[in-house]
Design a binder for these strands. Structure first.
Length: 949
RNA sequence: GCGGGAGUAGCCGAGCAUGGCCAAAGGCGCUAGACUCAAGAUCUAGUCCUAUAGGGGUCCGAGGGUUCAAAUCCCUCCUCCCGCACCA
């Protein structure tokens, strides 16, 4: 059969929509607005099919709402803030072969590449790619008149205003911050996606307590992750072979490894080198331990790593397996004791923490249990340390030896002891990374101190509470995120919002050398799209966008005449912009991938709450999971990484849209599968064929019509219900599978009503439109409408639902099924099928049973009175009826009143065709029927007996 | 650690909120048939076990419980996955 050419029709309709400005959106006070966005993408290079998942969901919902009669605003933009465009330009400048090949493969020309050695041009280029090759290509109903991006002058004005407002509301603050930074190129993010890194994405920033041990005029320093164990300290460990550094920090002299000094230079204002001291020089000497004011001996050890902590470790043999084993080793090493002349009499483990699992001497116990022999058995020691720590942290309590902290839970004591030691000047804080991290640029990543970092005060009590309230009112999908968002907001701490260095973005208004960071300038932007249109039309200039202007538009402050005078924006324009904002806001829905759950969505919401009144705050969030490659990220080797325009041509845009919508719930990661995409392509072809076929049928009304009308209406109702709840997958399932399969059944049953099929066909194509708009337009081209995209959805009509029609079909299906079963099992020829409808008295008896099945056979008395039937037959029937009564489905079928014989006669032709047999229908108690095996007596109401020969 | 999620037939993957028409949608794979010289594509039927009459049995990670009734609710356990901040 003639099918359609997706490349041709998709292009055709894309062009027609554009020519006719179908997606143009204007304020219209007579229609209810619906405003939705997807989280705009950064400019990070070419996108792949994974990214299109979220955008497609957005378009499906936009189109659905549009067809429900809403005035839908669906804008889009990009987020080039950051250094991604800069580093791409740099790579191209350096003639990086890999990058150039990548650009070419995705369709960039030589000139494009030449041009893109300038970061601004990178942004320009990708803005076009995103718009033309991705969003338009996919047939999205975006109105690009509202397009904006975050490094445009106008957008920067908007961000500047936003930060002024945050400052006014006392939501900005400055304080020291320890963050990860590359020694070459400034702040970088350490995360497994390794956007900024070439190595070490799984590293964690660890906070050590740097303990200071008095050692003459100096301090020996030891870094620990477990400050709560200070009461159990018995000695220090140094490596006799290491040349330790002496450095001056904050007027004191500290001793630590060279590696530690290097790290500290990024965390302390001044670090002056004062000389060195070899480990063995310190061995045997005494230090004064912080917090417990106890003299301790310095002992030699071999397990120390100068790149971990300070290369000096305080020993807590009661709770640290390493220390316990090292101490045991040294006590048995007489040679060593003699060499350094060590006095070890007082060096004994001290009980400090009691946990359920490990008692009061956990190190001893676990070393015993794991059978650890020496300090060289690193693997076992790591395991032991981990186990004890976990148990201690959760169930542990501090013992009496811990003085003021006795009885406290370990979790609490840990913080308290750390804070107390620091405030007494006996300890400091030292940050380090858990593994080596290397920047994209090749530089080493360290933890550095920024003394005057700017923060947005998301910890603010009032803001937090108001945001939580709002979150609870919103429509958030999936439910699990709706449940979590309030606690995510409560947990949200102050967040740094500006940075220095090589960065594209808006200058921080209160300190121009800082640039606003990428998350901080992408929280409130749905409010800006509305203005961007006026800027794009040339009615608004960036330098007119003053604080008063934004105050007026977003917060209704000030007098129009006044603002018009100071900004030069005509009064009517100001009014128009203000009204636009008023009309479109609040935002109905923000859609984004699951990566946004812990950062973007919370700050998006909190900034709205900070800046706008309650009735203007967002109403919905939709989170989608990812499209992934086999076993993880989408990549070249695993498929799904081909350029989007190529994929669109290969599979068809409608196919891909249906794939996203239907192949999995939006709330799970979905593996990309080419085969599956091709199946959806076939699906669309066969749906196309079916709709073409039903257009051509020319038959008349039949009884089966009522069934199709009824089922269609019920499914239509369900369709709307699920789509209103943004259950995209269910909606697609109804439109593309449930309804077509009802139509298939209808045709199979001999339905051919031309008028009905035309009507249902037209409605069905509308239901398909949000998902596969191109094919829907093509199918409806001859219907004398402009664009099906602009049509309204069919609505559910309750009067069309007929329980009777449905029950009759169910009955036929059941009979058909039973015959099939018998044919499967029995060895019969199957030329003649006899169907015996149950005697009337059986139905009467069944109804009596239904009245009160609890009575069981006790019902017999009553039934014998009322029902006229042979008493033996009656008794055995009631018995079986009592069993059947628990089958809910059967019961409800029996309750519907229709003539079985009549419906069977009607379906005779269908059954004969299905089984290629003669069908004979009779009542079970008719005289002279053909029933050699006496099957007729087995008939039940709505469950006729069958005999086949 | 903290917080969250998931375990469904050979495989992928719905269902679970509102327990009962659930032996459990859809797809893949497989089997048979139609079409074809043949292959592919397509279409039809079947695909837990069992049964020569529409039946019976077992089943939704494991084990308990609630209920007339559990894949669905509750408890315990096992296994796997994700987020945890300057990454959009």
């Amino acid at each position: 059969m003639e099918t359609y050419d997706h490349v041709e029709i998709e292009e055709k309709w894309r062009e027609r929509w554009e020519e006719n400005k179908v997606h143009k959106t204007e304020r219209d006070e007579d229609r209810e607005p619906f405003y939705l966005i997807f989280a705009y993408p950064g400019i990070s290079g070419f996108l792949h099919l994974g990214h299109m998942r979220c955008y497609t969901y957005t378009d499906i919902l936009a189109r659905y709402k549009q067809m429900k009669g809403y005035n839908v605003l669906f804008p889009a933009g990009t987020h080039p803030t950051g250094n991604q465009a800069i580093s791409l330009a740099k790579k191209l400048e350096e003639n990086d072969e890999g990058k150039i090949a990548y650009m070419k493969k995705n369709g960039a020309t030589e000139e494009d590449i030449e041009r893109m050695k300038d970061p601004e041009e990178v942004v320009k280029y990708f803005n076009e790619v995103y718009k033309e090759d991705y969003w338009k290509k996919f047939g999205f109903s975006i109105d690009f008149d509202y397009f904006t991006h975050t490094i445009r002058e106008d957008y920067k004005k908007f961000i500047t205003w936003q930060f002024k407002k945050l400052k006014e509301k006392d939501l900005l603050t400055q304080k020291p911050y320890f963050g990860t930074e590359c020694v070459e190129c400034g702040p970088v993010a350490v995360d497994p996606s390794e956007t900024d890194l070439s190595e070490g994405g799984n590293a964690e920033k660890q906070e050590f307590t740097l303990l200071k041990f008095e050692y003459g005029d100096r301090y020996v320093t030891a870094a620990t992750l477990r400050p709560e164990t200070v009461f159990g300290q018995t000695n220090l460990w140094v490596d006799p072979e290491i040349e330790y550094q002496i450095v001056e920090i904050e007027g004191e002299e500290w001793i630590m490894s060279e590696e530690a000094v290097e790290k500290l230079t990024y965390q302390k204002d001044s670090v002056k080198e004062k000389g060195t001291i070899k480990g063995e020089k310190m061995v045997g000497e005494k230090v004064l331990a912080p917090g417990i004011d106890r003299e301790m001996i310095i002992l030699p050890a071999s397990f120390l790593d100068p790149d971990f902590g300070t290369g000096i470790v305080t020993s807590v043999p009661s709770d640290a397996p390493y220390d316990y084993v090292a101490l045991k080793d040294i006590k048995e090493d007489e040679e060593l004791i003699e060499k350094y002349d060590l006095d070890l009499t007082d060096v004994e483990p001290i009980e400090i923490i009691e946990s359920e699992e490990w008692g009061t001497m956990p190190a001893e116990k676990i070393v015993d249990e794991l059978d650890i022999e020496s300090q060289e058995e690193e693997e076992k020691l790591e395991e032991a340390t981990e186990k004890i720590y976990r148990a201690g942290f959760h169930t542990g309590r501090m013992l009496d030896s811990c003085k003021d902290y006795a009885g406290m839970r370990v979790q609490e004591a840990k913080e308290r002891i750390k804070d107390d030691l620091i405030s007494e000047g006996k300890a400091d804080v030292f940050y380090d990374l858990s593994e080596e991290v290397i920047c994209r640029c090749g530089g080493k990543v360290v933890v550095g101190k920024i003394p005057d970092q700017w923060f947005i005060r998301y910890s603010d009590q009032e803001l937090t509470e108001a945001s939580v309230d709002q979150a609870k009112k919103m429509m958030i999908k999936p439910q699990s995120y709706a449940d979590n968002l309030p606690s995510t907001i409560e947990w949200f701490q102050d967040r740094s919002c500006a940075r220095k260095g090589n960065w594209m973005g808006t200058n921080f208004p209160f300190n121009e050398e800082w640039i606003i960071e990428a998350i901080a300038d992408s929280t409130f932007y749905p409010a800006y799209y509305i203005l961007a249109k006026h800027y794009n039309q040339g009615d608004l200039k960036a330098d007119q966008m003053s604080e008063e202007f934004f105050d007026h538009v977003y917060q209704g402050k000030g007098e129009v005449q006044e603002i018009s005078k100071t900004t030069g924006i005509p009064e009517h324009k100001l009014k128009e912009i203000r009204e636009d904002f008023d009309y479109w806001y609040p935002l109905d829905l923000n859609l984004g991938g699951k990566e946004h759950m812990t950062v973007h969505f919370p700050v998006f919401l909190m900034n709205h709450v900070a800046l706008l009144e309650e009735e203007e705050r967002p109403k919905g969030i939709f989170v989608n999971w990812w499209l992934v490659g086999k076993g993880g990220k989408i990549s070249k080797s695993k498929g799904g990484a081909e350029p989007i325009p190529d994929a669109a041509e290969k599979y068809g845009v409608d196919t891909l849209r249906l794939f996203y919508a239907h192949s999995a719930s939006p709330f799970v990661d979905k593996e990309w599968s080419e085969e599956e995409a091709l199946i959806y392509q076939k699906k669309l072809n066969s749906l196309w064929d079916m709709i073409q076929k039903i257009k051509e049928l020319k038959g008349e009304e039949k009884a089966i019509d009522d069934y199709l009308i009824s089922r269609f209406n019920e499914l239509l109702k369900e369709y709307h219900e699920v789509m209103e709840e943004y259950e995209i997958r269910k909606g697609a399932n109804i439109a593309f599978y449930d309804i077509p399969s009802e139509i298939e059944w209808y045709l199979k049953r001999g339905g051919e009503n031309r008028e009905l099929l035309q009507k249902i066909g037209k409605k069905l194509v509308r239901l398909l439109t949000p998902f596969t708009p191109h094919i829907a337009e093509e199918l409806s081209e001859e219907w004398n409408i402009d664009f099906i995209t602009q049509e309204l959805m069919p609505e559910y009509d309750e009067d069309k639902v007929s329980k009777l029609a449905e029950a009759r079909e169910e009955y036929v299906k059941k009979v058909q099924e039973d015959i099939k079963h018998i044919l499967d099992i029995a060895e019969v020829e199957g030329h003649d099928i006899y169907i015996y409808v149950a005697e009337a008295w059986k139905e009467q008896a069944f109804e009596k049973v239904l009245e009160d099945p609890e009575k069981g056979m006790g019902l017999m008395g009553e039934i014998v009175e009322e029902v006229d039937a042979p008493s033996d037959d009656l008794a055995s029937f009631v018995k079986s009826a009592l069993e059947d009564v628990s089958e809910i489905g059967y019961q409800s079928l029996v309750e519907v009143d229709f003539g079985e014989k009549e419906i069977l006669e009607e379906s005779k032709e269908f059954l004969e065709k299905t089984f290629e047999a003669d069908i004979h229908i009779a009542e079970a108690d008719e005289e002279g029927i053909h029933d050699p095996e006496n099957k007729a007596s087995h008939s039940k109401p709505k469950r006729p007996a069958i005999y086949i020969e």
